[in-house]
Design a protein around this nucleic acid. Sequence first.
DNA 1: TGACTATTTGGCCATAAAGCCATATACTAA
DNA 2: TTAGTATATGGCTTTATGGCCAAATAGTCA
Lengths: 98, 98
Amino acid sequence: MKKRGDYRQFAKIHRALANEARLMIVESLEKRERTVGELTKLIGLDQSTVSKHLSILLSAGIVDNRKQANNVYYRLLIPCVMDMFSCTMKVLEKRRSL
Amino acid sequence: MKKRGDYRQFAKIHRALANEARLMIVESLEKRERTVGELTKLIGLDQSTVSKHLSILLSAGIVDNRKQANNVYYRLLIPCVMDMFSCTMKVLEKRRSL
DNA sequence: TGACTATTTGGCCATAAAGCCATATACTAA
DNA sequence: TTAGTATATGGCTTTATGGCCAAATAGTCA
């Protein structure tokens, strides 16, 4: 990690994960792909809001999508994102132990 | 990862890493602790700005500090944060390959 | 004590993020 | 074609973020 642009990209990816709703989305995509409608029901925010969250995850490169009939299915592109969560969890544990 | 509060905490940690300057700070702390002054020189932003970035990392539980004479030394509390970067890098690689 | 150094805090401004509603687009099915 | 369903986009408001400057605080050393 050297160039200025890399930092920018890294920051963008972390920013994409810096929101409760998007974390819920990513976690729910761990097992299988889901439609926007399913995710909207799951998250409980306005459909347009969920759509915007998805476009943020998409442009960060964390998810991918495919269109089928009326639905757009989103899937997790980078499984190691879930591993990041285990580190995040360590931060929480450490903090609790202080 | 189940409770609403967990998502909030996770988001907070990722938000702390969602900024170029803070990423530079974290990376520079990988090898050794550093003073605010050293970090300020390294980052090239106003010293007060760097101080605020440090307090964000601190309250996220990512770094820790100790005071010695006139200086405050910051150190990386959770080394696995660096591992997260390797996943972030994978996101970038995947995206470039599309 | 007073001057000096290092760091933090408060105030302000400009920009970005997150939410909703209303509307537009894309596709399906009759 | 028309109606219906699923998703995305534009506009708006509120709140958060990131930067700087100026001032406050904490510690050192004559």
